[in-house]
Structures are given as structure tokens and as C-alpha cells.
Amino acid sequence: MPYSPPLIGPHESGGLYELSQALDALGRAGLGVAPADVVEVEAFWQGGQWGSCAGGFVLRLQDARRAYLDVWIEESEDGKIPPKVDIEFAPLAAGQARPCFPSAADPIGGWSTEVAPLNAFLQEARQA
């Protein structure tokens, strides 16, 4: 089946595009965590420019652990081939609200707790 680009692009997604790509990559990564293990998104950040975008998600998992899922997405110039998606997944220590970044300026655009659409997406995906 030929690749068809997503209907939602990174610049108008409110994090949905980045989360969808990150979960898809997580499912293929063999890290011992599956997309179905994600119960909710607690907070996220996203940023991008033409041709690439990135995001990070603080997640609560089914086993009550919390983790951080980071994604970097590079789109093809013509949009006819799937994007290149890289992820990093790391558990958060007990009591750790968010991951540590190398500078106070990170993450790009700051954290958002406007996660209702992301959690609705997770809920719909679990029911599918």
C-alpha cells in the first residue's frame, strides 16, 4: 500500500501529530513498552519548522510508572514518503515531575498541560 500523508500536519496538531508518530515508533522500538501501555499524557511540549518537528510527552503508564517520550520527526520534501521518526524513552524517577533538560530554555515553547485532546486520542486508540 502506498504511503499517504497524515491529515493533520505538525503545525496545526496541538501535539496530536507528534504523539501519533511517537507512539507508532514506540510500538516498533522493542523497548518493552507498547502504545497500549500509555494511560494518559500529563504534559507535553512541541516545536517545529518547515520540514521537521519535535515534541516530548510526560506519560503515565498502566503499571503506574511515569515516563518521558521524546520524538524528532523529519518530513520528506514532497511528503510522498513516510517521515523519519526518532524517539527516546526514559522512565521518570518517583517524585520527578518532568525530565531534566540541559538548559533552562528547554523545552522549545515550554510545557503545556492542555492535554485533553491528546488523552481523547489515546482513549479512541484503545477502543479501536
Rank of each mutant, 00 (worst) to 15 (best):
G48P: 09
T113I: 05
E77V: 15
A97C: 04
L26V: 09
V39E: 13
S112H: 01
G79T: 14
D106M: 11
R66K: 09
K80H: 14
S112C: 01
P2A: 09
G55R: 01
H11P: 05
S4V: 15
A94N: 10
L23G: 06
A105R: 11
A36V: 10
P82H: 12
Y3H: 13
Q62K: 14
L92P: 06
A25M: 12
R65A: 09
T113R: 11
G95E: 06
V85Y: 09
D37V: 02
D63P: 10
A36Y: 04
V33W: 07
G79E: 10
R60E: 13
E40Y: 00
A105H: 08
E114H: 11
G27A: 05
R66D: 01
A93N: 08
G47R: 01
I8A: 12
P91V: 10
W72K: 14
V41I: 03
R98Q: 10
Q62C: 12
R60H: 06
A29Y: 08
E114A: 13
G14M: 01
Q96C: 02
S103I: 02
E42S: 10
S103E: 08
L7S: 14
A29G: 08
A43C: 03
L118S: 03
V38L: 04
N119W: 02
P107L: 03
E88F: 11
L92Q: 02
E42T: 07
D70Y: 08
W72V: 14
T113Q: 10
G15T: 00
L31Q: 08
E75M: 12
E124W: 07
Q127M: 13
T113V: 10
E114W: 09
A94V: 10
F44N: 04
G56W: 03
D70C: 06
F101D: 00
M1F: 12
S13G: 11
H11T: 11
G110D: 01
V115D: 00
N119S: 04
G109F: 03
A97S: 10
P117W: 06
L118P: 00
A116V: 09
P99W: 05
L26F: 05
D78W: 13
C53I: 09
S103L: 02
Y17L: 08
A36H: 09
F89W: 06
I81H: 15
V33H: 03
D24R: 12
H11W: 13
G48R: 04
V85G: 12
D70M: 07
L61Q: 06
R126Q: 13
R65S: 10
V33Y: 02
G48L: 08
A105M: 05
G110Y: 03
S103H: 06
F121I: 02
V41G: 05
E40H: 00
A97K: 07
P102G: 08
A22Q: 01
R66F: 07
A116D: 12
Q123M: 11
D24S: 13
F57H: 02
Q127Y: 04
K84S: 15
E114M: 07
D24T: 13
F121S: 10
G30P: 07
C100T: 15
E77F: 15
A54G: 14
E124P: 00
E124G: 11
R126H: 12
G47W: 05
R126P: 07
